[in-house]
C-alpha cells in the first residue's frame, strides 16, 4: 500500500503512523462532558466502505494527513493535509 503525501508524493505505507478515523483530530474542549470525551476517544462509525482517517507522516515530513480510503478494497481515493481543512470546532465546550 502506498499513500500519497500532499508534500512528499506517493510513499510506502510503512512511513506513516495510523491514528484511526479522522475525528481523532477534533479534540473536545477542556471541560467537555464525559459523553463528549467518550464519543471522541472510543465510539466509532467503523464503516465497511469509505472512511476518512488520519495518518501521520512520521518517517517523512511529519505532516498530518487525512486519507479517504475504502476499508474493504484498501483503495485510496484522496489525501489532503489536515492543516488545509477548516479549523475544527471544539465540541462540547461549556461556556
Amino acid at each position: 500500500m502506498r499513500i500519497t503525501c500532499p508534500l512528499c508524493g506517493a510513499r510506502d505505507r510503512r512511513e506513516f503512523t495510523y491514528y484511526g478515523a479522522s475525528v481523532y483530530a477534533d479534540r473536545p474542549a477542556e471541560g467537555a462532558a464525559p459523553e463528549v470525551w467518550d464519543d471522541y476517544l472510543h465510539l466509532r462509525d467503523n464503516p465497511a466502505g469509505e472512511i476518512t482517517d488520519l495518518w501521520y507522516h512520521e518517517l517523512g515530513c511529519s505532516a498530518w494527513i487525512e486519507v479517504t480510503r475504502n476499508t474493504v478494497t484498501h483503495a485510496i481515493s484522496a489525501t489532503r493535509l489536515l492543516a488545509d481543512r477548516a479549523t475544527p470546532t471544539k465540541k462540547g465546550a461549556r461556556s
Binding site: G20, A21, D38, H42, L43, R44, D45, N46, P47, A48, T71
Partner: peptide, 18 residues
C-alpha cells in the same frame, strides 16, 4: 469483526474499530 455494522442496524455506535 462485523459487530459495528450489526449494531448500527439498532442505531448503536460501538467503541469498536475493525
Amino acid at each position: 469483526g462485523r459487530s459495528g455494522q450489526v449494531a448500527a442496524m439498532a442505531g448503536m455506535r460501538l467503541p469498536i474499530e475493525s
